[in-house]
Design a protein around this nucleic acid. Structure first.
Lengths: 165, 165
DNA sequence: CAATAAATGAGAATAAGTCCCATTTATTTT
DNA sequence: AAAATAAATGGGACTTATTCTCATTTATTG
């Protein structure tokens, strides 16, 4: 319905992942040889609850003290280690975190300075090709091996934050 | 000599800005109706000392306690307010800061995960045009007004960090 | 040059994130 | 399936970056 979900629907096998979040949390853990514990399942469920990046505070609220702060940070670290979690910082310097469920979901971020919302954005395949070419030039110029990139876009939603929930 | 300086030389009117850093610091302040004080001049000089983004720690070392920590943060805030300073966060979650001396110096960042260095990178004018077009599509799709963007590239320098000083 | 306003220094306060260790939970072995 | 072993957790102490407070100093204005 919303353009956000529409835009990102290809990132999820929705039928699978939404059916039973506990089940898919377990699958993520076992697929990566990480032991299945209650706190890990709860954190994964909280992460799955939203497709866009969330703050640590968002997560803590959802978890309602069912997971200790130290455990939350530890679990997030575990998920980063197995590459299912991406952590970055918003323009107002808040740490945000998002699940990466497939390697295919390369995307970028759109930041609203009014409401703070962060929206995942895919760019066209043609543009990504041009960007890759440009990045190859940079690799040669600076003698770098570049293994990832991201385009950040900063602005404001123009109609009463309709995109921002 | 280094490819970094060569790449960024157009960002600076070197003859002017390097001649007398104290003079140009004063000019920056008076141009923006900010009162000229010693701490502000010292911080601006420390910022001018490097063309690439620096950590707060770098600055504190250069300033050798000639400026109080609270004042340093306050001055950085002042400089952000008048839009001559850009603050962002590196992938390892360190706050970095760089002077923006002209509006013309739109650029992007290349992060080395080996040595932590951050390098300013300009992309070709043709590519920037294509990127703008792509961003306009995003504006329409999400009903956003986008006023800035940045491409972040992540990788490692391949020959013993020759680029990284 | 005096009066007023603004900026600074030093350290206390806050907040995000990490660390430690005794207890609990998962896994492996028998 | 129970015991033994290994791993994970909770809770709070600790660390570190940044902000805040306020008495003093420095700049600006009349």
């Amino acid at each position: 319905m919303s353009s956000i979900n529409e835009n990102l629907s290809h990132f999820f096998d929705t039928a699978f992942y939404n059916k039973n979040m506990s089940e898919s949390s377990r699958k993520i853990l076992s697929d990566h040889n990480v032991s299945i514990t209650n706190p890990r399942i709860l954190v994964l469920e909280a992460l799955m609850d939203s497709q866009n990046p969330q703050t640590i505070d968002d997560l803590q609220k959802k978890l309602e003290n069912k997971v200790a702060k130290s455990t939350l940070y530890r679990v997030l670290g575990d998920l980063k280690k197995i590459n299912v979690l991406h952590e970055f910082t918003s323009p107002d310097n808040t740490t945000v975190v998002e699940l990466l469920l497939h390697d295919t979901e390369h995307h970028h971020h759109l930041f609203c300075s009014d409401c703070g919302e962060i929206i995942d954005v895919g760019l066209s395949a043609e543009f990504e090709k041009l960007l890759s070419a440009e990045i190859e030039k940079i690799e040669r110029k600076f003698n770098f091996k570049i293994n990832d990139h991201r385009v950040e876009m900063f602005g404001t939603c123009t109609d009463q934050c309709s995109n921002c929930k």
